[in-house]
Write a protein that binds this DNA or RNA. Structure first.
Lengths: 201, 201
DNA sequence: CAGATGACAGATATTGAAATCTGTCATCTG
DNA sequence: CAGATGACAGATTTCAATATCTGTCATCTG
């Protein structure tokens, strides 16, 4: 079905896989489904991805990268003072996740399953985000707004990331609809920012 | 089997249930098992607990209460300065959880399942812990060590609890064996404590 | 008669046979 | 001959029949 004359690329396979996952969910989306949607045999899919797991990982990475890229924009050096940039970065992360979870819960559940399967991909993504945070914090130190813990801006960035887990880890997605959540987010961010701010000597 | 002449009390049923859960795990521990272990018919168990869910909740509550009680001791007013008391409280919570998870992983996995089933019990437990934190923080404010966010010590306590989720939420138990975890805990606690400390006016 | 029992109905879990899927590879085709 | 195919073996999933469990209640017993 859907016989296309176009060349079979990794890109096209990824798109078909996303679609299959959206349609059938993580438990039922098979490599055979993907091949069928592309009008090829499933053997051809295995020419581009060694295993089903590798295929799913590639889809997962793509999904995470979309968020990383948006945040990278905010983390980039700019005229915004680091404390505001940090706040903006955290709020954007929270909002992005919350929308992903709230706007299409089924798709979000699907990706949550994929995330659990692909711990290496997730670790890499977290490392990227921590790097971005670390850049903002480092700039804050340079500009005199922030002080790190133990003079280590990466460890401090990791701490900021962990301290805000509740507002970006999909494990907490079910709490993101509750009424007071915005206020709770603000309180944690305020506390963390106060912790980062340089004391007046 | 194991015919005892002793009266059938809620307490004895709870003990037998814990034992059944330890032996068979959460998926296979049945009310019939519990009754058999006590040498009574399963109908008798239903005289003390309305449903299997209520029985499991009671077991879960007991387990959580053991931790609450240890922490209540630390949260109680004492000569320890609030910042140290808070640090000690958080460290004790982390250590307690980490030992529960590490010393008997199977039993911990069992309780993790029970925790997911009994959201009301968990919420109550979290509320208790937040109350304890709130007491310490309030004392810190009174003694001039701390400042809250928005003058709200309960909201601030909740923020402290959420900011340290990674070190007490069973969802993260698998990360508690990793080498750097102690340092990461210390960094987050340092950051949070800095956030709480009153600025010098 | 307070408290225990066990038969029972409906819900849930287990099991094993059949169906489907994953990953390989010898073969085919443009 | 680069790239696609589909038959195949072993792994995994599905499905329906069977067994077990939950929760109730009429009945029993000390």
């Amino acid at each position: 079905m859907a016989p296309t004359t176009e060349a079979l690329t990794a890109e096209r396979i990824l798109e078909a896989t996303e679609e299959a996952l959206r349609r059938h969910g993580p438990a039922k989306a098979t490599v055979v489904d993907v091949a069928r949607a592309l009008g090829v045999s499933h053997g051809s899919v295995y020419r581009h991805f060694r295993t089903k797991a590798a295929l799913r990982e590639a889809v997962t990475k793509r999904w995470l990268d979309r968020t990383s890229q948006i945040l990278a924009e905010i983390a980039r050096p700019s005229s915004t003072p680091p404390p505001e940039a940090l706040e903006h970065w955290l709020a954007t992360l929270f909002t992005a996740k919350r929308h992903k979870a709230g706007d299409d819960p089924e798709l979000f559940a699907t990706y949550s399953v994929l995330l659990d399967e692909a711990s290496a991909v997730v670790e890499e993504h977290v490392a990227e985000l921590v790097d971005q945070l670390s850049d903002i914090i480092h700039r804050g130190v340079t500009e005199g707004d922030f002080m790190t813990v133990d003079g280590d801006s990466v460890a401090t960035a990791r701490a900021v990331f962990h301290a805000t887990n509740r507002f970006h880890d999909p494990a907490y997605a079910h709490e993101w609809e509750q009424p007071g959540i915005e206020a709770e987010f603000t309180t944690v961010v305020t506390l963390v920012l106060r912790g980062l701010r340089r004391r007046i000597d």
